[in-house]
Amino acid sequence: MNELLLFIRKNSKWFVFAICAIVSCVMLFQSNPYHQHLYLTSAGRAVSSVYKSGSMLSSYLNLRSINEDLNRRNAELQAEIAAQNEVIERLHELGFRDTLVTEAGVRHFDFIVAHVINNSIARPFNYITINKGSADGVRPELGVIDQNGVVGIVSNVGSGSARVISLLNPNFRLSCKIKRSDYFGSLVWDGKDPREALLEELPRHTVFEPGDTIVTSGYSAVFPEGLPVGVIMPDNNEHNENFFTLRVRLLADFTTLGNVQVVVNNFRAELDSLTVGESEDAKRKPFGN
């Protein structure tokens, strides 16, 4: 017994080193971003308060470009409203006045405005921290967009802050389609350039041209259909036997993220209740009969 204690004391530095290394490795290999403990992420209280005070100082720096972006988006939306109003007017004139209901009952999507307090783009797995949390209605697995396009998806939520898996993170795959032809594939970042991503799993017969817009497909309950994501870049010829892989220039500028919106789907619970048990069914009846 004494000899054992002596041995441990003599080689104590190796034991301390091994313990620290093992603890680090355990954290390292628990890589599922949804299952991390809140206090191991940047949405933890202490860390997010540092980021909040930092962003109070730095958020003024690129107000000018944010302002220009918002003005542009505002103009687009106004043009859209004008066009919609015209359509409604015409329908009224055509005699649909009695049957046409112009106001929807329950809104499908709500948006929570949040501010980015931390953002990385240079790492292989990037995350964003925002200054809204469970107290403001943010929940895990909600989509995050900015005025230009899709930004990411919420993974961990603290009371006043939340961590978002950035689109610049290979853990995040986004179901997208080509706006013009409705062919769909999945968008994933390849870790090389923060301005570009890959649209994979497009069928071989897909029709596309460089410059076509990529939008969200709306097949999941996270993002509404038709949100802009990116634009197909020229000189795409990567493909294997069955699928195309296209290089896409992202519309959201991740280097200057400022204000973002968290997308709340008001029909989420309903959609989830419809698909409950689907995967078990598929397991039980592998041939679908």
Binding site: K13, V16, F17, C20, A21, V23, S24, C25, V26, M27, L28, F29, Q30, Q36, Y39, L40, T41, S42, G44, A46, V47, V50, Y51, N118, S120, R123, F125, Y127, T129, R163
Partner: peptide, 24 residues
């Protein structure tokens, strides 16, 4: 020094959302 090093890396990991990477 190993323990201080571990704490340094752990602190950095919390900020950078890279659990374990800087700590190791």
């Amino acid at each position: 020094s190993v323990i201080l090093g571990f704490l340094t890396g752990l602190g950095m990991d919390l900020f950078a959302d890279t659990p374990g990477m800087n700590a190791l």
